[in-house]
Design a protein around this nucleic acid. Sequence first.
DNA 1: ATATCGTGTGTACGACTGTTCACTAATGTG
DNA 2: CACATTAGTGAACAGTCGTACACACGATAT
Lengths: 208, 208
Amino acid sequence: MADKQRRKPGETREKLMNAALTLVGKGRHFASLGIREVTRQAGVVPTSFYRHFRNMDDLGLQLVDELGLVLRRMMREARGNVLQADKLIDESVAIFISHARANRSFFMFMAQGLAGESRAVQEGIRSEMRFFASELANDLRRLRLVDHLSDQDLDVTCDLVVRSVAFSLTDLLGVSPDDDYQIDQIRKRTTRFLQLIFVGAAHWKSNG
Amino acid sequence: MADKQRRKPGETREKLMNAALTLVGKGRHFASLGIREVTRQAGVVPTSFYRHFRNMDDLGLQLVDELGLVLRRMMREARGNVLQADKLIDESVAIFISHARANRSFFMFMAQGLAGESRAVQEGIRSEMRFFASELANDLRRLRLVDHLSDQDLDVTCDLVVRSVAFSLTDLLGVSPDDDYQIDQIRKRTTRFLQLIFVGAAHWKSNG
DNA sequence: ATATCGTGTGTACGACTGTTCACTAATGTG
DNA sequence: CACATTAGTGAACAGTCGTACACACGATAT
């Protein structure tokens, strides 16, 4: 009887979620993970799974919630570190890349979930992205960088920005986490995407 | 002993690939499909699978090849139907949407594969996208619409265009195929993304 | 005509799956 | 202290999985 005493409340729950993330980080797709596989990785008996989750989709949904926290932390850091407006894009992309490296598995999960099997997870991630885009719109308004844009046009712009960055995830996760050169290439390219979009936004005229 | 005579060469192979696509079209993720499941859907005995594919990854790779054909057909139609330059974006997006509806499963597979489990499939789809972007660049050059852009800047622009359209897949596949209203919303939004990008490209100045 | 090859079928096997059940130790509540 | 609740365990189930093997049939080549 391996020690049965439970340490902290929710410790096994966390172990299970981390186990799923670990497997995703190793290149597995979330949709192909099984309950036994996850519990094995977590070093826990299969039955324990049901104490915390109804099924794998449920675990996925709870991972989306945690993903939200990760994204919010990233947003906070970006807001704190971006001093001058002219460095806004470079700084933000750099912060994104750094967070994606630090939380590789989380962002892998995010990239997978967008076209994943569970409709609920899919919707959850899209919802996080919408939130992110709306916060970005607020910030740009506050900095008075987009006074000539209507709310609607600003919304489209921010949506496109968030999508472009999110798509870069699939680039980022395709290269080794240690390949500094390639990662820097991705950073540069993403930066150019955003510059292109903002040039477009700067010259945008409604209905034209 | 149900009729064992083989009809045409490669018929079972096609049945298997279609079966996998059908399952993907029903919302399943390719990474979670099993050999038995696919053969069952195809109405074939499991052993037959090995006559045509080494494993599921192999089948995925061959699906990518067929996906390439689908994309090339789409490209050809776009080139034939886009008459005036000012309708280029609207027409192209409309053609894309129409093909995505007609080959829903194929495009679902594409969206899944970008963050899929098999590195080879991932790379295959990215390669198709690169090809698509380079063809787009050629067309824009030929139409003399981007004379002020360097090759490199044109490359970035086309890449961003292709990515934005590809990302729209995840929107498109999230709504019912019959929901004309929502699909039209997605079409409009994608069109606006591309307009924004091209406005950016029109005003782009190197190193600025 | 006969041999070979490609492609289909049926059976079989061990490994792994999700899930249920009964049991037990630690924690929170009175 | 007594007691209910929570969160862990191990054994067991029927079902599914991937894969191997031997065999059957039609087509093709000799």
